[in-house]
Amino acid sequence: MSDQDEFVTFSLTVDGTPREVTARWSESLLTVLRDRLGVRGPKTGCAHGRCGACAVRADLGDGDPHVLCSCLVPAATAAGGSVQTIASIGGPDGELSDVQEAFLAEGAVQCGICTAGFVTAATELLETNPEPTRTEIEEALYGNLCRCTGYGRIVAAVETAARTRREQKSPVPLTTRELAASLRTGPEEAR
């Protein structure tokens, strides 16, 4: 068996861009994203599905996109599929999403290694459940570990993001800039 036999070639859409990948058969989706494609949003934490630092939203080719630990997925099983990392959550010019703004406003970020995973999981939660209870937030973030801030600020950030989204459904939506300011001062002062 030649060295070349170790490799698999497949296509994968990452943050909207089609990519060709050649990787060893056992490589994880996380390894392919970070080391082969230079996509550094997902972080390597525990590398075995405990910490959630590598969380991405992926459609593994079966039309069922969901958030998963990219460290646990053999990369080639995602052949023909698509992956959305934290880069897809913010705007194209580095604009932060409402969830990201809420994390900043609530002081839910310290060293930052867990943040992309938390924001990914929290964004998915708010898409499926716009008015989560505190318990539902804690359950949804159960697979994400933080070792700096503790979880109080993070849960508060998700509550803030949910509340802001509800308030944003007012007739005149806030601009992103207003939204950012509103997270710090309240919606009326921002206008």
Binding site: S28, A47, G49, L72, T77
Partner: peptide
């Protein structure tokens, strides 16, 4: 799913010569 096999390979508690997914 990979949740069993991938950590096993990482920790070298399992050997494998390829995957059938």
């Amino acid at each position: 799913g990979g949740t069993e096999v991938m950590p096993d390979l990482l920790w070298r508690t399992r050997t494998a010569a390829g995957f059938v997914s």
